[in-house]
């Protein structure tokens, strides 16, 4: 119980769950786990089962795509307050990229099986979770489109 209280507090401190009710936060704390990653630790690997998502509490995580025979392509960096890993919501539940800590990272993971169970039992919770994720996904998509435009490229 003490551990869950501590995790509930960590969830409250993170922007993703900051505005949630204490009841839901306490409920979801049962799916949470605290993590520490050192620089260059891989948090997730492309193609592996996406059995959790992560809330970054401290440090920088780079999302990168492995390219055989070449250096990985760096896609994006995430920082304190960031969230990554929505593959747990989309079948076949596999990571779509590598996630690597570039420095000491402290993060909270949310277990996917546990979350799905709670969402199946309480559809309002599931709706709230999706409502929280979708704007983040939309902003990520918007940022990707902006980068595709290559606005800083030469106009020649």
């Amino acid at each position: 119980m003490v551990e869950i209280d501590g995790l509930s507090k960590l969830l409250k401190e993170h922007p993703f769950f900051a505005d949630w009710s204490d009841d839901y936060r306490d409920l979801l704390a049962g799916c949470a786990a605290n993590h520490r990653f050192d620089a260059n630790d891989y948090i997730a690997r492309e193609g592996q089962p996406a059995d959790k998502f992560f809330l970054v509490r401290h440090g920088t995580v780079v999302l990168e795509y492995p390219v055989p025979g070449r250096e990985p392509v760096l896609l994006e960096t995430l920082h304190e307050g960031g969230v990554f890993g929505w593959s747990w919501m989309i079948a076949p539940y596999r990571w779509a990229f590598d996630a690597r800590a570039t420095e000491l990272v402290r993060a909270v993971s949310m277990d996917a099986t546990c979350l799905r169970g709670k969402c199946d039992a309480d559809h309002t919770l599931g709706y709230e979770l999706f409502r929280q994720f979708i704007p983040i996904m939309a902003r990520r998509l918007e940022a990707t489109r902006l980068r595709l435009l290559d606005v800083y490229g030469s106009t020649r």
Binding site: L74, L75, T77, R139, R147
Partner: peptide, 16 residues
């Protein structure tokens, strides 16, 4: 917007 491995700064867009 993009960087090669070794870049220790941020990767992303200004609105972020």
């Amino acid at each position: 917007d993009r960087a090669a491995p070794g870049w220790a700064g941020k990767i992303g867009v200004v609105p972020d």
